[in-house]
Design a protein around this nucleic acid. Structure first.
Lengths: 214, 214, 214, 214
DNA sequence: CATGAATGAGGTTTCATTCAT
DNA sequence: CATGAATGAAACCTCATTCAT
């Protein structure tokens, strides 16, 4: 217990770097990369603007750091996500995605919106990571389609449609509103499931499609 | 002498104001309002920066003009949209939305992304228009649910989920790619239809997940 | 008289650009390019720093402008320099060089000292001009050596030695001091003549100047 | 045990202060005092900027140190310069000056160029030293003129002309080029000798000077 | 003696905007 | 209606320097 009693002396810098990340995250998400100045960030951190350059060589590096670490975190979180064994893959993905995206709304928003603010090299890196994540869902859909459990007209389109639908949630969801996160998850899960349910859905109000889907 | 003495030299082709709108639209969509300078716009228009102020009193007015006229155009286009009589409402909406949003990708993108760049007053106006448009779909869903043709757990959520899904298309769709706009429309229409199909979809593909969803 | 009574309206810009050149010239010569800020120049001109950019795109461009126009002026002045017909080439060069370099001490000093502040491209241009000017003297020396009027061990070295000697004058010469420019010219001319006199140097080239050397 | 317990880890090779001097010398010579930052120097030394302040209280002190020690070294070197006994004074000076200035091109260049970067007090000190050095040559010239061995129109001007000529060498001389340092020395020595040769200079290999040149 | 982090000032440049012409 | 020149503020970033560790 005596081991780490005193605050580490050399850690001040790490703390500042972390504060910079946090402040930039919030500000970039709220106003956009271009509309946020280094002064804005410094003010939030409680430091003079020049001090930021002890931790990040340029403003662009802050953005790159945020986006790369977000993508890495997202993929790592998926790899270690924990669900009851019997949970099927699409439920895993939908629930994971919604949960993660509601918890990290700012990161997600930046990751999607500020791609255009990345310089060419960083853009390529982040894009690759993004595609890796899309592939997670695409694989689930393809496998389910192959096994006949899902019906999918076009896996690429469906992947994007689902991700767009889910990713749109943080744009309007406010915690403390009418719906709990649990409820949101379930509502979206139902929509997703139905949207990839096996045909014939030739009559989308038709009672006789229910059994075929069973 | 007074009649046609001077050939109006300025009127050739598009007027400047319209060129400014076009240039600003493209640039705001590509880089974001904050990242685009009046000089950038002036360069695209082929004019000196000062000349822009003969047509718009501030940069903010250009943005407001673009967003308000987009929302007005969108609602007007819906009101006059022409479909075969037998087309059901959800198909009308999905096809209309996709068509319009693919044709006017820049306007749409700005309308969603640059809300934060509007000052308070303009924001309120545009938000109201946006809600009016969402209500179009919400009404369709509510009516269909009331008549039993659709099953909808939560109309507000479903409205937003569908709009998010559809609005996500221009983010990745490239004309000239594998899919025609017609095909996209149909794919999404099917997904939407299925996602709001009435029960019993009691078992969308996976018996052992039903209980968790209850 | 009425002709040009009013100050030309559109000329303000050209005047400012000229003021910038003049201010930069003085400041660069006094403190060096790196030690002079755009703010310093703007203050001298009586304008805000941003206004400088209406006339020169960068600080580097101001330097380039000064150096290129100096080299061009120098070569043009040599081409049109007017001397009595009987003046021999070496006297022409020495007198011309000293006069020009004393009149334009700032330009000359910058042209020699701030080569290192030029970016690669501008450096190459100015260097080429400089070599052209050295060639003027080198040609005089070579011709004189070929005709036997001068004795020169190594033309390239001699060229540079003479130019260095002459160019060193403005570093210490103060007008209003003990020596008139005329006297300086003559003193240096004698030294130069003697330094390239043939062996035996009983008549260094010019009967009517001989007495001046006595 | 006390003897060599701790290997002094900091003393390996050159001490830091000396490394700072060396780095500053090179950088100031290459880019000028104003264009070199303490960070630049620290980088060259392989140390953080703050560490420099353990050795020099300010950047200005580094410059002062370089210039004062250069002037002191120069005068000391002259005092102890070793030439064959029969070498005449002007040859001593020319050969000494060229040798020293080619060996210490950076110091020399800084000493001449960065006078303007010195604050008032340091400037006065260095200027005084510089004049002492000029006096060395002036004395030689005056003595030679008094004894009739040289003809000099104006000792002050001649002193400066010769020094400017000699000091100009490092600006263009590249070791490994066509000319050895020995050859340079001899070429310049001849030019200097001739430029101060007594009139009539019909025999600049005059019996009473010829042997000294051999 | 060196580091890493900070300051406060100031660097070059860009910005939205104004206005006489 | 456009231009060219200006302003005043602010952008990103670098600077010399300080200081606790």
């Amino acid at each position: 217990m005596a081991l780490s009693a005193r605050p580490q002396p050399r850690q001040r810098g790490l703390e500042t770097a972390e504060k910079v990340r946090k402040a930039a995250l919030r500000l970039f998400a709220a106003s956009g990369y271009a509309a946020v100045s280094m002064r804005d960030i410094a003010t939030q951190v409680g430091v003079q603007p020049g001090a930021l350059y002890n931790h990040f060589p340029t403003k662009q590096h802050i953005l790159k750091d945020l986006m790369l670490s977000h993508m890495a975190d997202l993929l790592a979180a998926w790899d270690t996500a924990d669900f009851p064994d019997e949970t099927d893959p699409i439920e895993r993905f939908v629930r994971f995605h919604i949960r993660y995206h509601l918890e990290r709304a700012d990161e997600v928003f930046i990751a999607y919106m500020e791609l255009r603010s990345l310089d060419a090299e960083n853009f390529a890196i982040v894009e690759a990571e993004r595609r890796r994540y899309e592939t997670v869902l695409a694989d689930i859909l393809n496998e389910g389609a192959a096994s006949g459990r899902y019906h999918i007209d076009n896996a690429k389109v469906t992947t994007r449609a689902i991700i767009a639908m889910l990713t749109g949630i943080p744009a309007w969801y406010r915690s403390g509103g009418d719906l709990s996160k649990e409820e949101i998850e379930t509502l979206y899960l139902n929509m997703v499931r139905k949207s990839i349910a096996p045909e014939p859905t030739d009559n989308p109000g038709n009672p006789d499609t229910g059994d075929r889907m069973a």
